[in-house]
Design a protein around this nucleic acid. Structure first.
Lengths: 223, 223
DNA sequence: AGCATAATCGGACCAGTAGTCCGCATCCGT
DNA sequence: ACGGATGCGGACTACTGGTCCGATTATGCT
């Protein structure tokens, strides 16, 4: 039995924010040996799988993304998909992380108004603007991800990160507010099918605008 | 081929609010013949299926509700489940409708503050109180239903009914408010897994209380 | 009670999907 | 070039939602 073949993605392949990829040359604890960089064929296949998934999503939505189809379109075996991403949910999660990585980094360490240093209210609105843009441009992926990863949404490190950020900003701007719940409520509107339902070609940012108004109502008058 | 055996639930078996069961003795259009009341064995089996579903939900959550298990526990064949409820989604939908029927009737034609005649603000809070109680008592069912019926949530007659009710009340209390979106946002918090995540034995109504505060913030100061 | 008809039944069967795994193939450092 | 580590693929498995037709049951009428 080969542990590496247990169809658990290796830590380096897990793209969740709580499991940020470590430098590949860092010694793995306990192995006394440098960890090898991802092989060229593995890297190639990983990208092929992500691109195939995107294409299937665009063609037929989440229900069209079966792993047989992904593997066939990417030109790899099904086992390769599982080795890289662990599961169907892991695959969709990886794609969504790819799409939101920049926003996350900007929130953690970018310049104001998105990054640290801006007043809480401004920072919240900048964040909602960024997240809204991603959600509007990836509503199909968002819907598929929600369905695939429904099992423990509230334990998911990504969700916990966004939730923590929103509730911290709400609390900073309005001490005493039920920030925990309201952050959940704001994030609950980032529902792929709702966004698709509300968004028209003539008004592609309607969703984000509505979320911003909702957040403003929650915060009450500026003062 | 026998049309009645097409695994579409007969209109009488559809419990959606837009398809309220008609009296069983009413002539079916075009048949020129009185429609027969549901047979005793069919009625018995229908209840057995619903009770079996409830039990499985209670024992192991939504993932535990496979139709094989439902049929076995109810002591019926799988075909019987499909004949009665059309699909897995239809089954969960029937159970949820059963749980919310009284609220719906009270909203449509009950006394104030839930029914017509109460001021919009009061009526909204009364409604959220009722819906919150149902959701808190049925969070596992709600989560299972959401997963099973995700396909066209925003076209579902039940959802459309609740959404219409909430947005009408919001609009009546605050003309100019983005009532359509905010009604979606309020209903988005009625997420079975969120309710389970937030609810503790020591504070079973925390969720509803938080939703009420959110609605109050949306409406702004009473005037 | 008996009969005829309509309604209902069940579980074998089917297609599809997520996921598993082992003999074989390829990569990459020395 | 070699050897060890890594990676591969597709046959296979288990499970699930859903289908269907010969058999059974319920019910109204005489």
């Amino acid at each position: 039995m080969r542990p590496h073949d247990r169809y658990r993605p290796r830590p380096a392949d897990r793209t969740g924010p709580a499991n940020r990829p470590r430098p590949r040359t860092e010694p793995a604890p306990g192995t006394g040996r440098a960890q090898r960089a991802e092989r060229a064929d593995a890297a190639r296949n990983r990208l092929a799988v992500l691109r195939a998934t995107e294409q299937l999503l665009a063609e037929g939505g989440g229900d069209h993304v079966s792993l047989d189809r992904v593997a066939a379109l990417a030109g790899v075996g099904k086992g390769t998909v599982f080795r890289r991403f662990g599961s169907r949910a892991g695959l969709l999660q990886a794609l969504l992380e790819e799409r939101s990585r920049e926003l996350r980094e900007a929130v953690v360490s970018g310049p104001p108004p998105l990054g640290p240093g801006a007043p809480a209210r401004e920072r919240l609105h900048a964040f909602l603007d960024g997240l809204g843009a991603i959600a509007e441009g990836n509503a199909v992926l968002l819907a598929a991800h929600e369905q695939a990863c429904a099992e423990d949404k509230y334990g998911d490190p990504s969700y916990l990160f966004w939730h923590g950020h929103v509730s911290a900003l709400l609390a900073a701007e309005r001490p005493g507010l039920d920030a925990d719940f309201l952050a959940h409520a704001v994030l609950a509107t980032f529902d792929g099918d709702l966004i698709r339902h509300l968004t028209t070609p003539g008004d592609p940012r309607r969703f984000t605008r509505s979320v911003q108004e909702m957040a403003a109502a929650m915060l009450g008058p500026a003062g």
